[in-house]
């Protein structure tokens, strides 16, 4: 099993590799009200992970361990939390993060056909990233733009009323 630190099959430690980013995370956590009480510190875990993912793009084991150490938590607790919340990922994601909304409103208006078309054209399963790390495909549940259903998000760009036919164009736009 890979630890997620090795995106190219080469092992490396994100924390050591990117001292600048590490410092940024370190400063963020230092600014929190961390004390000796593990239970209290845990209350800062999720925001620290949000920040860490924001900085590093994903949360490989070295980053998890770093956060665990800073908050005096067990690595297993940190991993338990990361693996629980779908927002967190311990694998690198693509440059273009394609999210197909499969919330109810989008579903009844044909989101599945859109998702299937993305899967077919990108040769990806839901939750996977292309080997060149250009595209990641995921489904998500309701971005709150149900009037535009079915909705697709590419990074922060929202596409509304998407049909299977539009999928190829959306992919082509990502250059």
């Amino acid at each position: 099993m890979s630890c997620g630190d090795c995106p190219d099959g080469r092992k490396f430690d994100l924390i050591k590799e990117f001292p600048e980013k590490t410092k940024q995370l370190n400063d963020f956590i230092d600014a929190l009200d961390i004390g000796p009480d593990r239970n209290r510190n845990r209350g800062f875990l999720i925001e620290s992970l949000h920040e860490a993912q924001h900085i590093f793009g994903y949360l490989p084991r070295s980053v998890q361990q770093f956060v665990a150490d800073k908050l005096h938590l067990y690595l297993s607790e940190v991993y338990g939390v990361i693996s629980f919340y779908s927002y967190f990922t311990d694998r690198p994601v693509g440059k273009y993060k394609i999210s197909v909304c499969t919330g109810t409103a989008c579903f009844v208006r044909g989101a599945n056909a859109v998702l299937e078309e993305f899967k077919r054209l990108l040769v990806l399963e839901n939750g996977e990233t292309t080997p060149d790390r250009k595209f990641s495909l995921a489904s998500l549940r309701c971005v709150g733009a149900c009037s535009l259903a079915p909705v697709v998000m590419v990074n922060d760009q929202v596409y509304g009323k998407v049909t299977a036919k539009m999928v190829a164009d959306i992919i082509n736009e990502c250059k």
Binding site: R61, L75, S76, Y79, G80, S83, F84, D90
Partner: peptide, 18 residues
């Protein structure tokens, strides 16, 4: 602190990190 719940839903299990 080696063991934690991991994942959720049907894939939930108990074990060490990762």
């Amino acid at each position: 602190g080696v063991l934690s719940g991991i994942g959720r839903g049907f894939r939930a299990v108990v074990g060490p990190a990762d």
